[in-house]
Computed example of a mutant assay.
Amino acid sequence: MESTAAVLESPTDGNNLSKATPAAFKTIEIADPTGEEVLVEITAASLCHTDVGITRGQLEELFPLVMGHEGAGRVAAVGEDVESVDPGDQVVLGRITCGRCEFCREGNGQLCSKRTEARRSGTLRTGNIRFSRNGDPVHHCHGVSSFSEYTLVTEEVAIEVDDNLPAEQATLLGCGVFTGAGAVMNTADIEAGSSVVVFGAGGVGLSAVQGARLRSAREVIAVDIVQEKLKIASEVGATHTINSSEEDVVDRVREFTDGGVDYAFEVVGNPHVTEQAIECLTPTGQAVLVGVPPLGKRDISLDLYDMVVSEKGVVGSFNGSYSLPLAIPKLADLAVKEDLQLEPLITDRKPLTQLNEAMHKLETGAGVRQIIEP
């Protein structure tokens, strides 16, 4: 079948997308689903900083590719071996997990070896490329490719969720929400009464703020340079906010918490911000690194003496350390009950053909999550 899709032919030159129009809107051919494959009609997708990183060539990808890795939709058709979803089901597009490798068997599907292999080769988990244009292959983006009218994924990527959850909220569960909330509730597994600071109040950071609220943290401090985002952070659970362009973050965090926080979450992917997060910790505190820096970023300065004598810890968190087939339905249930607030995270809506404009806006730091409508 044919589908209109946002195709990235190659990464843009330089770092400034405001002078580029990286996405081209092309008609692609999608093969009929077979075996473990699921054809999904996209009802809503959403834009993430990872999409911008891909356009800049900051991740290992093969081109051309159909863009997008956050999406929700309806199952249109399934292959003969599919058992978990049926045509008509509402699904969130999660991530590739093979269910067989050492990491998957241990409940760490976010580290699935097949997932990394497929992402770097631009294929589905099976190694197949099911998109084409004029007979030539067009690669898959992280096994998802949600910036399209239709997409084809392997069965584990299409995760059924409650029909009562609006599609434009459901799509947020496809990356940012489970990454942020999971870092707090799963990776760190914070205790009630903990003190928390979250650096970055975008979609991931605001989800981390909500995770801390759901875990009954005592202080939840949100840090950003955009006042609009800090306002939203207060609405969804932050007890304090800090505009880091106007105040000394470390001093203010210590003031709010009488010495430092138990947990600091860095969701920006910036070495300097990572250093600040660690400085904010109280003895025995833990810094959780969530934001993914560009490949090759290694420059960070640590006070190793303080790390040792204060017994501070640093840990990475990828995709909230979650097994997504279990986590996404649970998060969807929280959203239906409005314990997890997704609507405040939606700050704009644009048709697929305005994806480039949406990426330009994201680069300026404005807004939180933009819904991309096919």
Rank of each mutant, 00 (worst) to 15 (best):
M1T: 10
A6Y: 00
V7T: 02
L8E: 04
E9K: 14
P11H: 02
D13I: 13
D13Y: 15
N15I: 14
N16C: 11
I28S: 03
E29T: 14
P33H: 04
P33M: 02
P33K: 05
T34Y: 13
E36W: 15
V38R: 01
L39Y: 09
C48T: 03
H49C: 10
H49L: 09
T55Y: 04
T55S: 10
G57Q: 05
L59C: 12
L62Q: 12
L62D: 13
F63E: 03
M67V: 07
M67K: 06
G68I: 01
G68Y: 02
G73M: 06
V75Y: 05
V75A: 07
E83C: 13
G94Y: 02
G99T: 03
R100S: 13
F103P: 10
R105S: 14
G107K: 03
Q110P: 11
C112W: 03
K114T: 10
R119K: 15
R120H: 10
S121F: 12
T123Q: 04
T126I: 09
G127K: 04
R133A: 07
N134L: 08
C141Y: 12
H142T: 11
S145E: 01
E149I: 04
E149F: 05
L152G: 07
T154L: 11
I159A: 07
E160L: 10
D162V: 09
A167M: 13
L173N: 01
V177C: 02
T187N: 08
G193C: 04
V197K: 00
G205Y: 00
G211R: 01
G211Q: 01
A217N: 01
E219Y: 08
I221A: 06
D224E: 06
K229W: 06
L230M: 05
G237H: 07
I242C: 03
I242V: 08
I242F: 06
V253A: 00
T257D: 05
D258R: 11
Y263H: 09
A264G: 08
V267F: 08
V268F: 07
V268E: 03
E275Y: 09
E275A: 11
T282C: 14
T284Y: 11
V292R: 08
I300V: 14
Y305H: 15
D306F: 10
V309D: 11
V315M: 12
F318L: 15
G320W: 04
S321H: 11
Y322V: 13
L326I: 12
I328V: 08
P329M: 04
A332H: 05
D333S: 15
V336G: 02
V336R: 02
D339W: 12
D339H: 15
I346V: 10
L352F: 03
L355G: 00
H360Y: 04
K361P: 13
V368W: 00
E373M: 10
